[in-house]
């Protein structure tokens, strides 16, 4: 029964794949035109950054990135709501500890570099945040129960920092009369850098905290209530 069902599904998926291959070919033929690339490059000087991908992520389609940071936050909130974290691994031996003291600073340094370089070359907040998150994972694997993260009350502020700075910049530009997330000329580069810095910290903290898992207020945070 199960294998017969699998066979039917397999046949269906195979047909779907063949059909889609043909459709992709057709779509490529229709869309041989320029798409949005020309416009994206033409607008580049006004964005204050010279890496076109960063320009799309933080200027042209900054609103998408804002919501995407909110998705990351929502995942962490969901993880926190599921209950207490399981205990960390036992402390590692001397060799691993030695490696950790070497690798973690390197990861943080590389993260900072990627954040800065994102303005004009491949790199940016997500790559940098991923490295910071990886540093947290490495520390947790080496036995640090909190993955190198600050106390839980501070974590809460760090994980919202990315979305918060982003949306506050949006509301501020709106207050200045330019429209939501419409950076004023000349400020663009620095606003993007500020948003990216906050986003890097938030992404790194969120990824490490998600790896730790668990509920952060079970101990000290809300001890007065419940």
């Amino acid at each position: 029964m199960k294998s017969a069902g699998g066979l039917v599904i397999g046949a269906f998926v195979l047909l779907l794949a063949i059909w889609l291959l043909w459709v992709v070919q057709t779509a490529i033929d229709i869309g041989a035109g320029p798409r949005l690339a020309e416009q994206a490059f033409a607008g580049l000087p006004a964005t204050g950054v010279s890496n076109p991908v960063t320009a799309v992520l933080l200027s042209y389609r900054g609103y998408d990135t804002l919501l995407e940071l909110a998705v990351l936050l929502a995942a962490l909130l969901g993880i926190w709501s599921l209950g207490a974290a399981s205990p960390g691994f036992q402390a590692a031996g001397a060799v691993l500890q030695g490696m950790v003291t070497l690798v973690v600073p390197l990861l943080i340094l590389a993260g900072g570099y990627l954040l800065w370089v994102g303005g004009h070359a491949p790199g940016g907040a997500f790559q940098a945040g991923a490295l910071l998150g990886a540093a947290g994972v490495v520390m947790r694997l080496a036995g640090d129960e909190r993955a190198g993260l600050p106390p839980l009350a501070a974590q809460r502020w760090l994980v919202v920092a990315g979305v918060a700075v982003f949306v506050l910049v949006g509301i501020a530009t709106m207050g200045l009369g330019a429209g939501f997330l419409a950076y004023p000329i000349g400020w663009s580069k620095w606003l993007i850098l500020a948003i990216e810095t906050a986003a890097t910290v938030a992404i790194g903290t969120t990824l490490a905290a998600a790896y730790v898992g668990g509920r952060p207020w079970s101990h000290a945070d809300v001890s007065g209530q419940s």
Binding site: Q39, A40, G43, S59, R61, L181, Y183
Partner: peptide
């Protein structure tokens, strides 16, 4: 949003 018109 962002002061950029629709396709972009």
């Amino acid at each position: 949003l962002g002061g950029w018109a629709a396709p972009l």
